[in-house]
Simulated assay, not measured.
Amino acid sequence: MTPNQRGSPIYSSCTKCKTLIPLGESRCTRHRPKRTHVLSSTQRGYDAEYLRNRATILEGSPLCVLCNRRIATTADHIIPLSRGGTNQIHNLRPACPRCNSGRGNRL
């Protein structure tokens, strides 16, 4: 569709029910996916024990144990929390953000 002479916005239709919606959106408000609640860091398992052990691991600005090139600013779980790991100091190691986020929840 093209805009009319007065410059009205261009519309498209919802992919589910064919209701007119502004161009650039694919679904009407009724069919748009609901936002999911994002859990807090405490709810995800990063508690006071993790913060203490993270500070211990990162004191002295160690190098990343995964790439040995960058300074580590994050604590990587050797066995991820999602796979049954803990926040204990023997399960943490220093890692740079790039290596830590790239690793995901792999062992």
Rank of each mutant, 00 (worst) to 15 (best):
R93Y: 04
V38T: 12
I57Q: 03
G102Q: 07
K34C: 00
Y11L: 15
H37F: 11
I10Y: 06
L107V: 14
K18M: 09
I71D: 08
G24A: 02
R54D: 01
C28Q: 04
V38F: 05
T56H: 08
K18I: 05
R52L: 08
N100M: 02
H37W: 08
Q5D: 09
S13M: 08
T36M: 12
S13N: 12
G24Q: 03
V65K: 13
C99A: 08
T86W: 08
N91V: 01
V38R: 14
A72W: 11
H37A: 10
G45L: 12
D47R: 12
M1H: 14
L107G: 07
E25Q: 15
L63V: 08
T42V: 14
R44G: 01
L58G: 02
C17G: 03
A72T: 02
L107C: 10
H90K: 05
P97Q: 10
T56K: 14
T19F: 11
R44I: 04
R98V: 15
R93D: 00
G7Q: 09
T15G: 06
E25N: 12
P9Y: 09
S61R: 14
R106F: 02
N100C: 03
R30W: 08
D76W: 10
T29V: 08
S61Y: 09
P62N: 04
T74K: 15
Q88M: 12
Q5V: 13
S26G: 12
P33I: 11
T56C: 07
G102H: 07
H31Y: 11
I89Y: 12
R93E: 02
Y46I: 13
R106Q: 08
N105Q: 09
S82T: 15
K34L: 04
V38S: 11
T36C: 08
T2V: 11
N53F: 05
C96F: 04
S13P: 00
T19I: 08
H90P: 00
A95P: 01
T19Y: 11
R103W: 00
Q43W: 02
L39W: 13
A48N: 06
E25S: 13
R32D: 01
R69F: 07
K18F: 12
S82G: 11
P33T: 06
R30Y: 14
R27M: 03
T19Q: 13
R83I: 01
K34P: 00
G7T: 09
D76H: 15
T15L: 03
P33E: 07
G84V: 03
